[in-house]
């Protein structure tokens, strides 16, 4: 996809999923802040596209660039954002308790459906680090929800080892 208009159309179509990711990444952040983040990220990406600093070849590459922009901006903007309140379900509190990059990796894989390579590209880390962070996020989330009376989970200790041989 080299046509600028096609890329913009793809980004426009994908706006709902960008909003979902930004809201989840904020773990309790308000919709005004999350939508503002998406707006700023897409506007910044648009400027980079026009300057040809990024030249995605297809729709998927354009989406990944947008996820990169959202993740990168969120890492700074969400540092001062308010956390979840009493009305948020336990899983949101659990997500808020995770390290930002652990949370981003978990959401990219579990919610947005990216493979490990794409998640690594978006988060700016290696594939091995993606797996390590995914494993840690799931273990911490299981531990958090078990301790907070949230969703029943298998003990986090079961999954504490990296690349554990189970058979």
């Amino acid at each position: 996809m080299s046509n600028y208009a096609d890329i913009l159309a793809e980004l426009s179509e994908a706006t709902p999923v960008f909003r979902r990711y930004a809201r989840a990444l904020g773990a309790g952040v308000g919709l005004v802040v999350a939508d503002g983040l998406v707006h700023s990220a897409l506007q910044g990406l648009g400027a980079r596209l026009r300057a040809r600093e990024v030249t995605p070849n297809d729709a998927e590459a354009a989406r990944i660039e947008a996820y990169k922009a959202i993740t990168s901006l969120a890492a700074h903007k969400y540092q001062v954002a308010s956390g979840p309140g009493p009305r948020h379900p336990p899983i949101v509190h659990g997500l808020a308790a995770l390290d930002f990059t652990d949370r981003a990796v978990l959401l990219l894989v579990s919610l947005e459906g990216f493979g490990y390579d794409a998640a690594a590209d978006i988060a700016g880390i290696s594939r091995e680090t993606v797996f390590m962070r995914l494993q840690r996020a799931r273990a911490l989330l299981a531990n958090w929800t078990a301790n907070s009376g949230g969703i029943p989970q298998v003990s986090a200790a079961r999954s504490s080892a990296h690349l554990r041989v189970v058979k």
Binding site: L11, T15, V17, R23, L45, I91
Partner: peptide, 23 residues
């Protein structure tokens, strides 16, 4: 659990200006 919380956002209608933010 994560999807149950965040999937409903896909049914919301984004503002037109948000959809055209990259432009």
């Amino acid at each position: 659990a994560i999807r149950a919380v965040y999937e409903p956002i896909l049914r919301e209608i984004p503002a037109p200006s948000l959809r055209s933010a990259a432009a």
